[in-house]
Structure formats: C-alpha cells, structure tokens
Design a binder for these strands. Structure first.
Lengths: 218, 218
DNA sequence: AGATTCTGATTGAACTGTCAATCAAAATAC
DNA sequence: GTATTTTGATTGACAGTTCAATCAGAATCT
C-alpha cells in the first residue's frame, strides 16, 4: 500500500520531507478509497501511515491542503502516465489515440484505490473549488490533445463527425467504465472495461480500430 | 429550490407525513448539491426546509436513513422518467433508444441540483453498501432494457458490434457528460451534452441516427 | 574523533467547535 | 381528550487544530 520505507521496527526520522509527504498522501488515497470522502479523518490517515496525527498538520498545514495535495498528486501522476505513453507511441493519430486509451488502463494507474479516490474527488468537485483549481488545467490539456488526434484521424481517414464530440465520448467513456468498476453490483474486468472504450473507438474509426483495438497496417 | 410549501409565516403542521418526508428529501438534495456529501448536516437540511433539526431524526430515524431515502427517491424518479418516455415512444428499437437518451436530458431530471447529488452519491458508492442496495436493481434494469434495444437494432440494421458494450458506451457517455457538467471549468450546455450522446449513437447506428438525433423514415 | 550545539521532525495531550442523536415539553390534529 | 407532530435545549462523541516537550540526526567546535 505505502510505497515507501516504513519496514524496520525503528524507521523513525529516516525519510526526507518529500518522502514523508508522499507517504501521507498515499495513506490518504488509501483511506479515501476505503472510507469515502466524508469519513476520511486525519487520525485514520496518520494511523495508516504509522505516524501520529499531529504530523499531518505539520507537513500540510490543514486537512484541506492535505486533500488538495493528494488530488494534485493523482492528477500529476495521471498526466505523466499518458504523456509517457505518447512518447513511445507511433506518429499516426490512430496509434496515438490507441496509446492514450491503453494508458488509462495501465496497472499502475488503474488500481482500485486510485479509481475510488478519483470518484470520491469527482463527487465533491461541485461544492469545492479545489477540484477545478487543481485538475482544471490538466483536464483541459488532455481533452485538447485527444481532440487534436481525433481531428487528424477524422480528416486522414475520411470519416464524418465532430472531433470535439468524438474526443469527449472517448474520454467520458473511460471515466464512465471507471465509475462502473466502483459502483456496479457485479463489476466487469479491467480488460472488459478497456474493450468497451475500444468498441467506441471502433465505432468512430472503423477502418483503424477493431473489436480488439488498433488495426494493423493502416 | 424546495418544491413544497414553506411559504406562510406559520405553515406548521400543514403537511402530511409523506409530504413532510418529501420536503426533507428535497432539502437534502439541495444541501448535498451545494455543500457536498462531507459537509451535509442535519441542521442545514432542517434549516433549508424551514424546520427544526429534531424533525429529521423524527421522520427518518437517522442521518444514514435520510440519505438512503434521498437516494431512493432520486433512483425511483429516474426510473419513472425513462419508463414514461418509453411508454409514448414508437416501437422501433431506434425510436426507443432515442427516447431513453432524450429522457436523460428532460429538464425535470437534468437539473443542476439533481446532477450534483447523483455525483455525490457516486463518489461515496465505493465505501458504503447503500448505493448498491438502493440503486443496484434499478441500474441493472436500465442496462438490461437498453441492451435489448441495442441488440434489436444491431440485428435489424445489419450492424456489427457487441450489444452489451454498445449499450454500456451509451449509458456511461450519458453519465460522463453529466459529470462534465459538474466538474468542468467551463461546462458546455445541456443541448451539447445531449448532442454528444447522440454522436455516439450515430457512430454505432449510422443509418438510424444522425448528428441531430434519430433519422426519420427508417 | 568525540563532545556540544542546533535544527526541525515528531509526539501526544489539550482545546475548541461541531454534529448526530435524545428527550421532555409544547403545539397541533383528530 | 388522546395521539401525533414539532420544537429547541441538552448531551456525548468525535474531529481538526494548536502547542509545548521530546528526540534523532546534522553541523559545528575542540
């Protein structure tokens, strides 16, 4: 769960400032995933990190700022993930769209804890400016990049349709299947979730995407 | 905001049991929409309904049960809405799919308060059995009905594709654009949201749906 | 190297405010 | 008159925040 040390019986005071912050953020993700936003307390976060509850306020000044830092961590991590995927993807717009979809289901990103935390933040987004402050820019960047690839592929492939709406469908379908994995009584697998997004891509770009993803040789 | 009385200076004891419960539920929706789940208190709910705070516990036994009743109200209302839309829709599967999509954007259902409340409940769904207990059956019924129409239209129109995944894309696209309306920095309009879902339908069923919805004469 | 000082991370108790739940009394309906 | 609904004060628990004391490790001195 916690990505850092916290192993030996006396690991105290071993971690740097940044590592300690990260440890508390990971603990926060875990608590939010398990208890929900409304029942996330500093005490539980500290307990899960094996630290005293005063520390959270020492490192983050307030509960709100800890939550904001947690969301920022998730958002930056997400952005770094899709940008890394694009860096090794082919130049064709279909390759780049396929890379973006695939990136959303990377095991490192698409974990139960992280998905649950994302959903919890979305649920609170309406009532707190925090979400838009932290994620607004990253979200717009992602939508813009995906829109560009969709525009290219629509033109390149001679497809009809509006790039903005196509990109939006692909993005919200991903978010939607994530939500399904959290809220459904009997959720389907991560592979089925990815296949669902690819089915949408195949509907918009039938000569570049098939039921199993990117079609070769185009 | 509140759909019921609360007008004259002394409206006390005017409403029946069911009406009073509904009044408290509407106030709860309003508070959740404005403050989020984590900051929803019984005191604020009662205040918004113009009642004293002891009443919430009198009519619903506990805060949890008030929240569950609120979710149940939303879920039943949603179900009644799409079933009413189906009752007046044509028999062709494309007509029925179009009716379901249209129903999701009815002004009575697709209000800022209700959307925000739905998102808040989704955010808490992972950590409380409440959501699945209350909505699981309705959600499965909706998915099953939509799947049936998709299966019929895929066969009838000679389309390729998997009915389960097509239905899932249409459903989560609707949920996704709802979420967008809540979380985006500069959200688009309800009409644009509906057009986005219709764009997805047009991708799967190009001979039955166009950019502006259901195509006539098919 | 060993002793001393300094820094700032860490703890845990105390304080404060808030909220859900309870309940006795008042108001209202039947 | 009796039953039901409503009020508003009270209670107890709990969470966020503050803070003084502690302590580990780094830096400095001899």
């Amino acid at each position: 769960m916690v990505a850092v040390v916290e192993t030996s019986p006396t690991p105290r005071r071993k971690l740097s400032r940044a590592e300690r912050r990260l440890q508390l953020i990971e603990a926060t993700i875990s608590v939010i995933a398990e208890n929900g936003f409304a029942r996330t307390t500093l005490g539980e976060v500290a307990k899960r990190a094996g630290l005293s509850h005063g520390l959270a306020n020492f490192h983050f000044e307030s509960k709100d700022k800890l939550l904001a830092a947690t969301l920022e961590h998730l958002s930056d991590e997400y952005r770094a993930n899709w940008q890394a995927a694009l860096a090794v993807a082919g130049p064709h717009p279909a390759d780049r769209i396929a890379a973006l979809i695939e990136a959303d289901f990377t095991p490192a990103i698409c974990t139960a804890d992280r998905l649950a935390a994302w959903c919890a933040f979305w649920g609170e987004a309406q009532s707190r400016p925090m979400y838009q402050d932290v994620c607004g820019q990253n979200d717009e960047e992602y939508q813009g990049v995906l829109e560009g690839f969709c525009r290219d592929l629509l033109a390149d492939g001679g497809y009809g349709g509006d790039a903005v709406r196509v990109a939006r469908v692909l993005r919200v379908t991903t978010e939607g299947v994530w939500l399904d994995l959290m809220t459904l009584q009997s959720p389907y697998s991560r592979d089925e979730a990815r296949a669902t997004v690819l089915a949408a891509a195949a509907a918009f770009f039938p000569r570049h995407f098939g039921p199993d993803g990117r079609l070769a040789g185009t």
